[in-house]
Design a protein around this nucleic acid. Structure first.
Lengths: 202, 202
DNA sequence: GCTTTATTTTAATCTGGATTAAAATAATTG
DNA sequence: CAATTATTTTAATCCAGATTAAAATAAAGC
């Protein structure tokens, strides 16, 4: 029977699989990656993947759920650690980017949500919207506590999340770039948002 | 034989086809759109599309070339019309967004470049890189002429282009949103970039 | 109108990659 | 170590959707 260790082994392998899949999808595109490609990364046979997922659709679905979870984790940590609204935004971006470039990554770009089956699609969309709303709420908090300049939180949120979501398109694992991303991207994305910033800082 | 009018008819229909395809790809994802889907938008049969393109890969390729062309057009117009570097950036963003939401749109998100055949992929990547470089060059111009605050143009460029490229993910044709996008998004993306901005403006 | 060319459809094939079933191997348990 | 369970492979099938060929229709030219 499945002992604790067995459960863990299964989960570990499944986790590796999801990261391999995310890597393939980001690199080769969705239609460009066959289950064979994902299996190759793991040193397995394509058929072996079916021990972990029902089909390719579920694989994509799980990649997206994972992506949403990691984003949510970054947000929660930021909210726990941050002082004011602006600080939470800055930390969230930092934490999220760390995940994208770190060993928990890569995080799949959600390019194929419409291809998911209806209930999966709805679930992922809901997760995605919730995350956006949370981010906008943080922006509003910052505006209220005076740390963020007044702005259209919907538009601003879309702008910043777009930049974040697009990162895997141009970041391909260069470690130097990874460091730069973590160190300077959050500041770049929030440039002009901080009520405390003076232009001299840049 | 093909008179001028005939040539135009063919080109017109092909253009409609590319816009229909871009719309489908953006809405349903690449793997989620069959040639049947694209044909349905045009009131045609899937087989009819083969009168205009060799295969589905070429359809995607042409969508991406078209996307690159429209982006380049926006950039050229901006450079012709703009005063200083910052003004060119602002205009480029405005013109590009107008294309995305206007009747020349939609513009296909380049999510499946890796699925293109090698020579097509190389060509599209080259167009894409050229456009990025042009944008970074404009940023540098702005820094030199004093209209843009000193910054990492590579990172800043990636940030802004990410936001632009992601728009079709959340903009679904709402006219009110279209107006808002044209009117306020360029400012939001360049917030904090202008050397002349004072925080009071926001 | 008759001929030629342009466009679209109908009705098949064709195919890569997903999926499945059964067998083989590896790990774990008692 | 025998028995059981977990994991992977081998070797087929299967199928949606791309692609093609031939026929039908529409448009244009003379």
């Amino acid at each position: 029977m499945a002992s604790d260790a067995e459960e863990t082994r299964f989960q570990l392998q499944k986790g590796r699989m999801l990261r391999a899949a995310a890597q393939c999808f980001n690199q080769k595109g969705y239609s460009g990656t066959s289950l064979r490609d994902v299996a190759d990364v793991l040193g397995l046979t394509d058929a072996a993947l079916y021990y972990y997922v029902r089909n390719k659709e579920e694989l994509v679905y799980l990649c997206y759920v994972r992506a949403a979870d990691l984003g949510r984790d970054a947000m929660l940590r930021a909210q726990a650690d941050g002082s004011d609204g602006f600080d939470v935004v800055l930390r969230y971006l930092r934490y999220h980017i760390e995940m994208i470039v770190g060993e928990r990554g890569p995080i799949a770009i959600m390019s194929e949500i419409p291809s998911l089956k209806p209930d999966h699609r709805d679930e992922v969309l809901a997760l995605s919207r919730t995350h956006s709303k949370n981010f906008e709420a943080v922006l509003e908090t910052g505006i209220e506590d005076g740390s963020i300049v007044p702005c259209d939180v919907r538009m601003t949120g879309n702008a910043i999340m777009g930049s974040i979501n697009w990162i895997p398109k141009w970041y391909h694992g260069d470690p130097e770039m990874a460091q730069k991303l973590v160190d300077s991207f959050p500041r770049i994305l929030t440039r002009g948002l901080s009520a405390g910033d003076s232009l001299a800082e840049f």
